[in-house]
């Protein structure tokens, strides 16, 4: 699993993480467990991937419940969210 930007900083500067799990959600939970400073940054309190975070499996954007294989490469990236008007 690869992370960038502030997530990489929260992981002590490490961008690549070898994590075991059967689904994207399991991997993300494990990533947060291994890197407590990252808690709440990718998954919210309900365990849902934050709305403007995208997860790619081998280059394809996938949901949290997507199954993963041991050889898969996962990228966690901020979404393209320009033009938002929050208020």
């Amino acid at each position: 699993m690869r992370v960038r930007g502030p997530l990489r900083q929260l992981a002590g500067g490490c961008s690549e993480h070898a994590i075991e799990g059967a689904t994207v959600a399991e991997l993300l939970r494990e990533l947060e467990r291994d890197n407590p400073a990252m808690g709440g940054w990718i998954l919210d309190e309900r365990g849902l991937v934050r709305r403007h975070i995208n997860v790619f499996v081998n280059g394809e954007r996938r949901g949290a419940e997507a199954a993963v294989d041991p050889a898969d490469r996962i990228d966690v990236l901020p979404a393209i969210s320009g033009g938002m008007t929050p208020r």
Binding site: L7, W41, I42, H52, S81
Partner: peptide, 9 residues
């Protein structure tokens, strides 16, 4: 700070 990506902190 409310990051659009990473939530409120």
């Amino acid at each position: 700070v409310t990051s659009a990506f990473y939530g409120p902190k």
